[in-house]
């Protein structure tokens, strides 16, 4: 027992550096998914048929494949085919991010469509252009509504990030596995690994809950039932 603790204690800095890599993967992927997901959602709701169809196809593709298949397809196939010689870490961020964009776009699209046509009509009636209306009126409301869905996306990406083990990114799981094979003590090592994942999920969701409360519009129950 004592030696297990000692071993974990010694391995902890190594594992924690892996957690930072995991956080980097998740942060990068969520960011990429966010900046792509928003214009995609807007394009799907307000764009012309061609744009909407292209986005529909993109979403269909990235949501239709297992994440590991996507990772291998891009890392071993498409990226080198495109002449890109990307490191594993960057590749993992790109693949997780491109995939997250598909999911996030649908979160934002749902929120935009839940707003009701009146908001856009009122904005246009003041003389706002479509872009101004989307930027000033639609997105500020849609983003607020999207936080719970986005929080879910965070916890999913966090867990999915572990697949980058398969291409050798030195994230949490890869390092845990490495220590486990060296020490022949899988149980305590993977327990620690699991615990760190749980803490990261808990912490991130907590932060997003706080954000949701902070930006909540006064007077709106936002899914909380008063009765």
């Amino acid at each position: 027992m004592v030696e297990n603790f000692l071993m974990i204690f010694q391995a902890l800095p190594y594992l924690l550096r892996g957690s930072l890599v995991t956080i980097g993967l998740v942060g990068g992927a969520l960011f990429l998914g966010f900046i792509m997901g928003i214009p995609m959602a807007v394009g799907q709701v307000y764009g012309n048929k061609l744009i909407a169809n292209l986005i529909f196809f993109y979403v269909w593709f990235f949501r239709g494949l297992p994440v590991l298949v996507l990772l291998f397809l891009f890392y071993f196939g498409l990226f080198s085919l495109m002449g890109l010689n990307l490191p594993a870490f960057t590749s993992a961020i790109l693949v997780l991010g491109l995939r997250s964009a598909a999911y996030q776009s649908q979160i934002f699209r749902g929120s935009i469509q839940s707003l009701g046509e009146g908001q856009m009509l009122a904005a246009r009636s003041l003389g706002m252009s479509k872009i101004q209306a989307i930027w000033n009126i639609i997105l500020p409301q849609a983003l607020r509504i999207s936080i719970p869905g986005w929080s879910n996306e965070y916890s999913i990406i966090l867990k999915d990030s572990a697949v980058s083990y398969a291409i050798g990114v030195m994230e949490l799981l890869t390092r845990a596995n490495f220590i486990s094979t060296r020490t022949y003590k899988p149980m305590p090592v993977f327990l620690t690994c699991a615990l760190i994942f749980l803490l990261l999920t808990y912490g991130g969701v907590k932060v997003l809950n706080l954000l949701e409360k902070k930006v909540r519009i006064p007077g709106y129950a936002y899914g909380r039932r008063e009765i």
């Binding site: 009146g118 003389g127 009126i137 409301q141 607020r144 709106y220």
Partner: peptide, 16 residues
Amino acid sequence: RQKMGMVFQDFNLFDH
């Protein structure tokens, strides 16, 4: 449109 003010049946105030 700036020169024509419009008032809607269901207000359409910007909720945020």
